[in-house]
């Protein structure tokens, strides 16, 4: 499975949605994922890809890891996976 499909599956599970309901433009807020859901998603992604995502809930904007949409999250993970 490619990174995109796997990440969408993780996010969909967190949002209790079908993967087909998660679009690349969606924000986590659109999908109803709150701050706890976000850290849980990040944990699941780290476990799935065996990577470490630099993310501090106190300063999300300062992180190199952009969580503003599903597309930016996938791009960030692809970078980390390929690093």
């Amino acid at each position: 499975m490619d990174v995109k499909k796997q990440v969408i599956a993780i996010i969909a599970e967190q949002a209790v949605l079908e993967p087909s309901d998660v679009s690349m433009e969606s924000t986590l807020e659109d999908l109803g994922i709150d701050s706890l859901g976000l850290v849980e998603s990040i944990f699941a992604i780290e476990e799935a890809f065996d990577i470490s995502i630099p993310f501090n809930a106190n300063e999300p904007e300062k992180s190199d890891f952009d969580i503003s949409s599903v597309a930016t999250i996938i791009a960030g993970i692809e970078q980390l996976v390929n690093a």
Partner: peptide, 17 residues
């Protein structure tokens, strides 16, 4: 993911956990 890695800076705009 609420812990700071460098210092506790309450109320400062630069606080990070």
């Amino acid at each position: 993911r609420v812990m700071s890695k460098d210092a506790c800076r309450p109320f400062s705009a630069t606080r990070n956990g």
